[in-house]
Design a protein around this nucleic acid. Sequence first.
DNA 1: AAGATATGCCTAAGATTTTTATGTATATAA
DNA 2: TTATATACATAAAAATCTTAGGCATATCTT
Lengths: 119, 119
Amino acid sequence: MYIHDMNASNQLFRGSLTTIILKLLSEQEKMYGYEMTKKVKELTGGELTLTEGALYPALHKMEAAGLLETTIENIGNRSRKYYHLTKKGNKEVPSKLAEMEAFFRQMQTILNLRLSTGK
Amino acid sequence: MYIHDMNASNQLFRGSLTTIILKLLSEQEKMYGYEMTKKVKELTGGELTLTEGALYPALHKMEAAGLLETTIENIGNRSRKYYHLTKKGNKEVPSKLAEMEAFFRQMQTILNLRLSTGK
DNA sequence: AAGATATGCCTAAGATTTTTATGTATATAA
DNA sequence: TTATATACATAAAAATCTTAGGCATATCTT
């Protein structure tokens, strides 16, 4: 993630997709792509959109990198490709989250933002 | 802006440079490029690096967009190009910060991160 | 005095990631 | 029947960053 430019407020930030995918799969065991897009929309009240054009290439890349594995399940005449973390993928979860957290702290410092501690 | 991928931890996040520049200049009236790189390094204890290769093109783009204006000052035999916010640039500060803040909140929701409220 | 580092600007090639626009197919709701 | 939802995917183009320079002056070390 470099510093750059965010445009529309309903989209995601360059540089966070891998971390989001790892996080989702660390909580849910297995998910399919379309499900992830819905999940992100749901979690953010529709404010963030994970587009399929960004998601699928990222999933394929992560699979090629050995972070994810897939299993196909057929629902009636349609099939879903479920992704789940490999051992390697699992190991990367905490470090990626820590990295992101560190980055956010730094950005808060620079921008002097106040994000609710909140629950 | 979309979700994507952060690599090295010492670099900046894609999509935040414009906001950082606006914020710095909203606090300091005028700054020159090199000074901004030092400021970011200082603010983050050396953890984030604003590279000149990313910064200068961004400054030029923002100037072309009418957000910034420049004045040259000569210090001995060397010159500095100071950037300052235009009226238009000034108006964009709060909305950009709000956008970034909203984005961070959403990411916290998804990633379940806890950033200290702090201070 | 020489050499290294710091200050200060800049660009260009390449890589990466995302946007936008499609394409295909099945299922369900209007 | 038509539109929307589900579900996968790719490809061209745009955007942004990394890396790697280049140039010039000033200061600090040895």
